[in-house]
């Protein structure tokens, strides 16, 4: 299929001799016809799907455009983002703590962490959300004091202490911590034993070693699944509708129960979720790059660097670009 003319092969076709730098390889690049055929088929498929949605009389398009930037929807978007960010941050800290406990040789810590992961990973998130939301039914008062005596330091009404938003945040965070703990643990296990020895040999304490040597290396392994978890979290916030937290999905269902435009509002909400999950992949890309330093001999260019290079028409790292396009 490809005819490569390698200089110096001595089989150059007869005719006017072309001046060729013997250091260059003059070859017809490998063609990929199937990629193009597949792309055309997919394009046709997507376009016809788009047209069918657009021409569907059962979808009222003005409703979509009306509600996509509706203030109530936007406030739901903001709350969804807030829930995702807070739950991910706090659960990551908890996850690191649990992972360290799990890997420590203190049997009490070890067992505690194991029990935590067992309980929170072993029950459905939806049930945990409802549980925290209805905690007031289980314990109407939460008080702190000395057990088995009448002495109390404080005592509050459960529903005052834990309103729906807090309950939802608590449920998402505690559940996520169990998953994050396992991710962090596998990341820590991926760090070579020799790293601990080297750190200890220069007098680093176990805690210092953890933060300066082990976790930064574990990050390379931790970030990709954590990116996944963040995307799951973003979508799982919609489960909080069962305890009436006013996040994106709850707001949408409230609106659609009034105007009876369920499908349109679901499309609005889906557009937002898609947009937010797409945006999330940007920080992940840069985090992966940052924690991958020192691993690859040279880091791949960022999309911006690639774009600039393309504009300047200077080929950069074509090999890598090609292999990524193929996937």
């Amino acid at each position: 299929m490809t005819q490569a003319t390698l200089t110096g092969s001595g089989r150059a076709p007869a005719g006017p001799a072309v001046e060729i730098d013997p250091d260059d390889i003059v070859a017809v690049p490998l063609r990929h016809p199937w990629r193009w055929i597949l792309a055309v088929f997919l394009l046709i498929g997507f376009v016809s799907l788009g047209i069918s949605l657009w021409q569907n009389e059962n979808i009222d398009h003005p409703t979509i455009t009306e509600f996509i930037f509706n203030p109530r929807i936007l406030s739901g978007v903001v709350l969804t983002i807030m829930l995702t960010v807070v739950a991910m941050l706090v659960s990551s800290v908890l996850g690191v703590l649990l992972a360290v406990m799990r890997l420590s040789n203190n049997p009490v810590m070890n067992t505690l962490a194991w029990l935590y992961v067992w309980a929170f990973r072993g029950t459905p998130l939806l049930i945990q959300i409802v549980f925290w939301g209805y905690l007031g039914l289980l314990y109407s008062q939460i008080s702190m004091g000395i057990p088995f005596t009448d002495f109390t330091i404080f005592s509050v009404d459960t529903n005052t202490l834990i309103p729906a938003l807090t309950a939802g945040l608590l449920a998402l965070t505690l559940n996520q911590a169990a998953y994050s703990a396992e991710i962090v643990r596998s990341g820590m296990l991926s760090v070579d034993e020799g790293q601990y020895e080297a750190a200890y040999s220069v007098g680093m304490s176990p805690v210092f070693t953890l933060f300066k040597v082990v976790l930064p290396q574990a990050m390379r392994v931790i970030i990709p699944p954590m990116g996944n978890e963040t995307i799951s979290m973003l979508k799982n916030t919609s489960l909080l509708s069962v305890i009436a937290v006013l996040e994106l999905y709850t707001v949408a269902t409230q609106i659609s129960s009034q105007n009876l435009r369920q499908v349109e509002l679901l499309l609005v909400v889906s557009c937002w979720y898609l947009f937010l999950t797409s945006v999330l992949s940007i920080p992940q890309y840069y985090l992966e790059r940052y924690y991958g330093r020192g691993k690859a001999r040279s880091l791949p260019p960022t999309p911006f660097q690639r774009l600039r290079a393309a504009l300047r028409r200077t080929p950069i790292n074509t090999h890598r670009t090609d292999s990524q396009d193929a996937s």
Partner: peptide, 28 residues
């Protein structure tokens, strides 16, 4: 850990910290 500061060790497999530059390895 305090005691180990006075005893340096060099390993067969180097065990440098891969996420730090040569200088950072030394100064950490």
């Amino acid at each position: 850990a305090r005691q180990r500061r006075g005893i340096g060790m060099v390993f067969q497999r180097f065990n440098l910290f891969p996420h730090m530059t040569a200088l950072e390895n030394i100064t950490a």
